[in-house]
Every structure is written in C-alpha cells, then in structure tokens.
Design a protein around this nucleic acid. Structure first.
Lengths: 140, 140
DNA sequence: ATAATTCCTATCGCATTACTCGGAAAAGCG
DNA sequence: CGCTTTTCCGAGTAATGCGATAGGAATTAT
C-alpha cells in the first residue's frame, strides 16, 4: 500500500507551485531545489501533470510552470490519481472491461467489499484536502 | 496504492479458514482450490501467517491449518499488516530509527500530515472488519 | 509401507521504479 | 544575431519486488 515517489513528488511540486501562485512561471529547477527532488526526474512528472491539464508551461529563459486553476480548486486526490492511477487497492474494482478478466469470481467474492470501503475512505481523505489548505500551513 | 497478492490471498485464505473453523485442520490444497490460488505460492504465505502466530499447522496426512483464535478476534487489518507490512503510505511515517534517514525534511514537510490521515483512515476500515464479519456473508 | 501433507530453500521471468543521459526546440536578453 | 535559460522528448539502466515454480526433506494418518 505504498505510495511511489511519483505521487509524493507530484504533490510536493504542486504544493510548491501553489505557494508561489501568482508570481509568474516558476522554473522546474527552483521547485526541484526547494523540494529536494532530482531535477531531471521531476521534468518527467511535470510532463504528466501538464498533459493532464493541471499546469501550463512557458518555454525559454524566465520560463517555468504555473497552475491552471486556483489552489483551492485542486485536491491532493486529483494529483495522486494522475500520478499513480486509480486509488482502488485492487484491480477488480475498476469498471472497465479490460479488467473483468481479473474478476471471474466477482459475484461470490467476499473480500471485494472490504477493498471498496478502503478505496472510498482513501478518496474521502485525499479529496478533502486542497493545495490551498497545504499552502496555508506553509513551513517551507 | 495497490495491494499485492500477498495481502489479497492472505485475507482470502484466512477467510476460508474462518468459514471452516471448528472442522479440524483444513488442507492448503483445498483452500487453494476454493480460493483460486496457486497451491505452492499459498504455502509460502501460510508460512508467514504461521510464524506470526495467526494459524497453526498439523503435518502429515489429514493435516492442514487452523486459526489460533476465534474469527471474531482477527481483523483484516491484522492480516494485511502481516502480509504487506505497515499500512503507512510513505516510509517517513514509520517510527523506527532506520527510516529517519528518509525524513531529514520531516520538520517542515507539509505533505506528511496528509499521508498520516490516509494511513489512519485505512487502518480504521481494516481494523473494523473481522473474519467473522466476512464469514457471515459467506458467498463461497 | 504408502500416500498425504507441511516445511524449507533456491531460482526465475517480468514489470516497475527512480532515476540518468543526451540532445532538440523555444524564447527572453544583451 | 547569438547566448543562455528553460521546457520537451525519447532512450537507457540498475535495483527491487512480485508472483510464482522446482525440488525435495520431514511428518503423520491409514
């Protein structure tokens, strides 16, 4: 049940952008430095966030990244789901046909209900916390 | 945030033992068959559960495994923690000195509080469900 | 004795993670 | 214009863990 660095770094980076929101493009280099993340690795993660529409970028000198929405409108859950995929602890909870092969036993699977409750409680926590909440308790 | 098969199979196997609790030793073979798990792989998982004191084994013909406590006294959380390790989504939440190296930033880490809340909500769900609860809604 | 069963150690292919590397393309600045 | 800063992109890579499989030793009911 571990989170990978994708999720952790993603949230840290987005938190950093939230703290500096409204100050123009923030360079990846400065984010990486403040958050203690490998610059080159963070580059890949920001690509994911950009393609998902959560940040926009400005290339060239004095360029960088900015949030596309207000910090209060982006939850930690949004970021985790983009960086790590669905929060469901087991694949058989996923709705798409692709995964039904994993769930021939779905009809008589007693544990399935347990995992659904876990997923829901994780989502409830992650979706209740916005970047604005985190930026407010700024300890950087 | 995925659960591995260790946790899933572990819960399934323990659920199976709970359903047949009081019927003497249950062979690994029959558990594997009913739950759709590789017999040889399950063997390793049962070893972990045995060493943790949750099941006891009888060797030889007509042997097998039995729960060491009543189904109502074993929670899904117990099993998951044995099979998968701590439910903390990030290592920096672990108390032991071994992991402090990962947390030089602990003092000013805003995201840490988020992960603690996630862990607590996962634990609350998993610790609230016992094997007796699962056995009650037997769909096998 | 034999068959059934747990126990133990080792190995293995595969996927993922967490990077690193090298360079192309864009844009501000002198 | 040319230089530097910065994003963008694809490849490569070492280490790790997962989900088994393999083979056999030890134990015990029948």
């Amino acid at each position: 049940m571990k989170l990978s660095t994708k999720g952790r770094y993603g949230v840290s980076a987005m938190y950093d952008l939230a703290v500096h929101h409204g100050q123009g493009p923030i360079s990846l280099k400065s984010v990486a430095l403040r958050q203690g993340i490998s610059e080159h690795y963070l580059e890949q993660l920001m690509g994911t966030l950009r393609k998902a529409g959560y940040v926009k970028s400005v290339r060239g000198a004095q360029g960088g990244y900015t949030l596309t929405r207000q910090p209060a409108e982006i939850t930690v859950g949004d970021i985790i789901r983009i960086m790590e995929g669905p929060t469901a602890p087991v694949d058989c909870l996923l709705a798409d046909a692709e995964n039904n092969k994993y769930c021939v036993r779905a009809g008589h699977c007693v544990t399935r209900g347990v995992w659904a409750k876990v997923r829901d409680s994780i989502d409830a926590v992650l979706d209740s916390i916005t970047l604005a909440d985190l930026a407010k308790e700024d300890k950087s």
